[in-house]
Write a protein that binds this DNA or RNA. Sequence first.
DNA 1: TAGATTGTTAATCGATTAACAATC
DNA 2: TAGATTGTTAATCGATTAACAATC
Lengths: 211, 211
Amino acid sequence: MEQRKISRAVISRLPRYYRYLGDLLEAGVERISSSDLSKKMHVTASQIRQDLNNFGGFGQQGYGYNVKYLYTEIGKILGLDRSHNFIIIGAGNLGQALANYASFERSGFILKSLFDVNPRLEGVTIRGIPVRMVDELKDFLKNNDIEIAALTLPKSKAIEVADILVDNGVKGIWNFAHTDLSLPKDVVVENVHLSDTLMKLSYNLCQQDKE
Amino acid sequence: MEQRKISRAVISRLPRYYRYLGDLLEAGVERISSSDLSKKMHVTASQIRQDLNNFGGFGQQGYGYNVKYLYTEIGKILGLDRSHNFIIIGAGNLGQALANYASFERSGFILKSLFDVNPRLEGVTIRGIPVRMVDELKDFLKNNDIEIAALTLPKSKAIEVADILVDNGVKGIWNFAHTDLSLPKDVVVENVHLSDTLMKLSYNLCQQDKE
DNA sequence: TAGATTGTTAATCGATTAACAATC
DNA sequence: TAGATTGTTAATCGATTAACAATC
């Protein structure tokens, strides 16, 4: 592949660009310069141009960037132009919160089922999507093409469930469990450790107090 | 203050150290070297020593680090040795998920109330903690010492609510709303944009496909 | 004391910013 | 054409890794 290796820092900025461009698009803005966008986003214009140029020349000298075009292109880079089937393991509060967040659907993430061990949740549906029991998981994966699984369950269960998922073809894990997973390197893991972010907030509050 | 400016990258690694040390502590491990810890965590020993030395010499040559001591010290750095009153604005699924996550309590984060606009939630309690109506928010803040607020509400409401919070003494905002907040610089904002993390996952899946 | 391992300095690597020629 | 703004190279800045003297 001629593709340069894109740094993690660049990738993690793309969703934010995408969000701002979406807002501009909604506001009916047709074009924007890196300089104007940089003021809105509180980053340097240099960084914007440098970031975008990792993927090709999306702009035009003397004009700037076409909002609609750039929005679409970043969407493609992020893989939002195709659909991704996903499931949620753990239908507790957090799992249900994710299941109810219909906006994912608009970005192409299609929720196919939730799973839980709690028999009281058997047969419950959320936005019409059923909660199944974890013992049906393996069968379900064999019969459905599931790309992504969100893990919203206690860390004690997370590791064994992750193994089942990976053994049955799941390629990406959105991990909310409070533990790191070690999985084959062709499996993509995105960790969301909520309590880590609360601790960072707490640290920064303490710093403020010192000033 | 003699305190050097600590980089954001270092801070964001602290909660992970804290988690691993907690696990070691639970497993009854008394001491650990940077080298052993580096193997567990898949980072370099150099980085661990460099990171910790930002805050002082917690180790001992020839011995390593005392797990209990280091755990406690990192806890102090993160401000987990004191308690932080917090509230949740938006008692939907995500707000309730956070409210039910009792582990925060163990780290010193004390949930005092939830707020919502939905009258059907009036009087509902979660783990004994009441949901109040947002129009009582200002009064509540005046009569209670609230340091942190989690924003788990639609972005359309987030900005105005954030202003009320800040005007009434809230110092830290844990922002789950899908928008950036621009607030006075003495207010600490920690953004948790869940959909951004899902997009990163999606990007990395696409990269895998190309290999 | 000898061995182990830190704390810390120096070297490397990578990411951000500045500058400007290319070009719409 | 002149002005604006990109794409891209070069300069700076910061973070990570390597190395080793200090020391328990």
